[in-house]
């Protein structure tokens, strides 16, 4: 595979489906000088899922809602990662209240952006089928890791399995989070109904504030920690990426109609 083909492959799938062939032809003709611009546009598009080509306005709304849920899951994961490094959100700068405020904002934002199920007999069946298909694997993996850790903690500690169990646990959480977002993104009306643009803007704005606060707290705690860990600092910095994406999406919602 040639470099320009690889670069085009790295674009979001919805974009590739719409423009991939034409972009590849133009990039081939323009040569290597077009690669920096190609990379910048690719990064820009990944940070603006609302702009990706869509079949309908509803699908764009669904993507914005999924972005909100993904930001909550990413924040939870990165916050947990920082805590595992000895940098819990509650340590600094002023005890528990910033973390409580952060959690409250996250929950409020999640409640505002979460697509609502419209449950009839057939849609409930479809929803259950998709949830089992997508989340069954990671649920089993997580349950297996949990069972292994509880049932045979002593015998595992002396074997190479001591690394496999936490890897399986964290892997199950990561895969579960990704699959959760895929479920939300794949199910549109009438099964799941994304909120309207006003509620989405409010919800995504709230989540942007929550993730910014979480990032600032983790970075503040990590850098003032007696033994600052690179992983905790990276987790704090990484939290600012969803904050940026959410803030940009709120702005995009002014010009991109979704309802």
């Amino acid at each position: 595979m040639r470099p320009h083909q690889l670069l085009v492959r790295l674009y979001p799938g919805a974009f590739r489906e719409r423009w991939g062939e034409a972009l590849e032809a133009e990039t081939r003709a323009a040569g290597w000088r077009s690669w920096p611009g190609l990379i910048l546009t690719m990064a820009d598009l990944w940070l603006h899922p609302l702009l990706w080509p869509a079949d309908s306005r509803l699908q764009r709304g669904q993507r914005a809602a999924t972005l909100g849920v993904a930001a909550v899951l990413a924040s939870a994961g990165l916050g947990r990662l920082a805590a595992e490094q000895g940098v819990p959100l509650t340590v600094r700068p002023s005890g528990h209240w910033p973390a409580t405020a952060c959690l409250t904002l996250l929950m409020l934002g999640l409640a505002l952006v979460a697509p609502l199920p419209r449950l009839t007999g057939s849609t409930a069946l479809l929803l259950a089928e998709v949830v089992v298909r997508r989340l069954g694997g990671p649920a089993l993996l997580g349950a297996g890791a949990l069972a292994a850790a509880h049932l045979a903690p002593g015998s595992l500690a002396a074997t190479p399995w001591r690394y496999a169990v936490p890897t399986a646990w964290w892997g199950a959480i990561a895969i579960g989070a990704v699959q959760c977002c895929r479920v939300l993104a794949s199910l549109t009306a009438p099964v799941l109904l994304a909120p309207g643009s006003g509620r989405l803007r409010l919800g995504l704005g709230t989540l942007a504030a929550a993730t910014t606060l979480a990032g600032a707290l983790v970075l503040g705690s990590a850098t003032t920690h007696p033994h600052p860990g690179a992983l905790a600092i990276a987790a704090g910095a990484a939290l600012l990426i969803p904050a940026w994406t959410l803030a940009r999406t709120v702005r995009d919602l002014r010009s991109v109609p979704i309802d």
Binding site: L23, A30, S34, W52
Partner: peptide
């Protein structure tokens, strides 16, 4: 001068999203 391919298709994507 021509637009870079990234700029061109990025602009098309944005314009289409804005309808």
């Amino acid at each position: 001068e021509r637009l870079g391919p990234g700029s061109l298709y990025g602009a098309l994507t944005r314009l289409e999203a804005k309808e």
